[in-house]
Computed example of a mutant assay.
Amino acid sequence: MVGSYDPFRLVPPHHYTSRNPAPFRVSVSMNVMLLMDFHAHLAHTEIIGLLGGHYFPDREIMEVIYVYPCKSSSTGFQCEMDPASEVAAREVFAEKGLEFVGWYHSHPTFDPQPSIRDIENQTQYQEMWRREDGVEPFIGVIVTPYDIEHDSNVSRFQFWMSGTNYDLSGQFRTPYSCQHSFLQNENLQEETFSQMASLVEEYHNYDQRVNMSETYRKDEEVSRLDKLIESLSSHINVSSNAAETFISQVRELMSADFRPNKNEETSKLDATKELILS
């Protein structure tokens, strides 16, 4: 913190109105929601990724249809994207004929409101992608998976962008919440599950990964895996058979490959004994 500037201060987004309408509408894929939510559940630290899609100026709508989870250096307070991941994401988007339309990151246990640092990053991206007509078709998404004060087991999402006006302090552009709808007539994509499996492999040995066998809240029998499944299920809008098959695959994936091994459990037990004896 320098003077009154605190980059980690959360700023509640404003809302667009009829007098100050949003520059475009946002429509998001079910598969995008699934992968962002899944990624956010894997670690106690913040995660980050990029979003691909299309902006249609004639209809003033952005469609977000693809997620590229990125590698990052993360603490409990901030998350920095690995530059190589951003380059790789751009290459994948180009191969798929997609535009670079947004980024996402998690606030693991606290409100999905952007920090001043988040707003600065978002503003830089928007300015980078500003069109000749002044529109900046680039959004941010914040996912909060583990806020135990939130009654629901479904993760909270904040779609947002930097407005054209500045905060009263003059330090940053005012954030605005973006309403979003969901793409219609979608199917669960095999690639989505494949990306989930890749994330499990990547985070399997991460020292800050979430233990899915632990209970989510005290005095409740719901595990973190149960909580994940409930949250993912809330995004699925396909036939019951397809949904059940997909959820069963995810549960099997997490049960088999995302639990602490015996050595880790033994180490934690030994550390606890040492603490007690000391």
Rank of each mutant, 00 (worst) to 15 (best):
residue 1 M to C: 07
residue 5 Y to F: 11
residue 5 Y to R: 12
residue 7 P to T: 05
residue 11 V to C: 11
residue 13 P to V: 02
residue 18 S to P: 15
residue 21 P to I: 01
residue 23 P to I: 04
residue 24 F to G: 09
residue 25 R to A: 15
residue 27 S to V: 10
residue 29 S to M: 09
residue 30 M to Q: 07
residue 30 M to H: 01
residue 36 M to Y: 04
residue 37 D to K: 08
residue 38 F to D: 00
residue 39 H to E: 15
residue 41 H to L: 07
residue 42 L to D: 08
residue 44 H to N: 12
residue 44 H to V: 12
residue 46 E to P: 04
residue 49 G to L: 08
residue 51 L to N: 05
residue 52 G to I: 05
residue 55 Y to Q: 13
residue 57 P to A: 04
residue 62 M to V: 06
residue 64 V to W: 04
residue 65 I to Q: 14
residue 66 Y to G: 02
residue 66 Y to Q: 13
residue 68 Y to C: 07
residue 72 S to D: 15
residue 74 S to V: 10
residue 77 F to Y: 07
residue 79 C to L: 10
residue 80 E to R: 12
residue 80 E to F: 08
residue 82 D to E: 03
residue 82 D to H: 11
residue 83 P to A: 05
residue 84 A to K: 11
residue 84 A to S: 12
residue 86 E to C: 05
residue 91 E to H: 01
residue 91 E to L: 09
residue 92 V to S: 12
residue 92 V to Y: 10
residue 95 E to G: 11
residue 95 E to K: 14
residue 95 E to V: 09
residue 96 K to L: 12
residue 98 L to V: 03
residue 98 L to I: 14
residue 99 E to N: 15
residue 100 F to G: 08
residue 101 V to S: 03
residue 106 S to L: 13
residue 107 H to R: 13
residue 108 P to A: 02
residue 112 P to R: 01
residue 113 Q to Y: 02
residue 116 I to K: 04
residue 116 I to G: 11
residue 116 I to L: 08
residue 125 Y to N: 06
residue 126 Q to N: 06
residue 126 Q to E: 03
residue 127 E to H: 15
residue 127 E to I: 11
residue 132 E to F: 07
residue 139 I to E: 02
residue 143 V to M: 09
residue 145 P to W: 13
residue 147 D to S: 10
residue 149 E to T: 06
residue 154 V to A: 09
residue 161 M to R: 12
residue 161 M to Y: 03
residue 164 T to I: 05
residue 170 G to L: 08
residue 170 G to I: 12
residue 173 R to H: 05
residue 173 R to Y: 11
residue 173 R to P: 02
residue 175 P to Q: 08
residue 177 S to N: 03
residue 177 S to C: 13
residue 178 C to M: 13
residue 180 H to D: 10
residue 188 L to H: 01
residue 190 E to L: 11
residue 192 T to W: 01
residue 193 F to L: 10
residue 194 S to I: 06
residue 194 S to H: 08
residue 204 H to E: 14
residue 205 N to T: 05
residue 207 D to C: 14
residue 210 V to I: 07
residue 211 N to R: 13
residue 213 S to F: 04
residue 213 S to C: 12
residue 214 E to Q: 10
residue 215 T to G: 03
residue 220 E to F: 05
residue 222 V to T: 10
residue 226 D to P: 03
residue 226 D to R: 03
residue 230 E to Q: 11
residue 232 L to D: 00
residue 232 L to K: 00
residue 232 L to P: 00
residue 234 S to G: 08
residue 236 I to R: 00
residue 238 V to S: 00
residue 238 V to A: 06
residue 238 V to Y: 00
residue 240 S to M: 09
residue 242 A to Q: 07
residue 244 E to R: 02
residue 246 F to G: 00
residue 248 S to A: 13
residue 251 R to N: 11
residue 252 E to K: 11
residue 255 S to F: 14
residue 257 D to Y: 06
residue 258 F to Y: 14
residue 263 N to W: 15
residue 264 E to H: 06
residue 267 S to R: 13
residue 270 D to C: 11
residue 271 A to V: 08
residue 277 L to F: 14
residue 277 L to S: 04
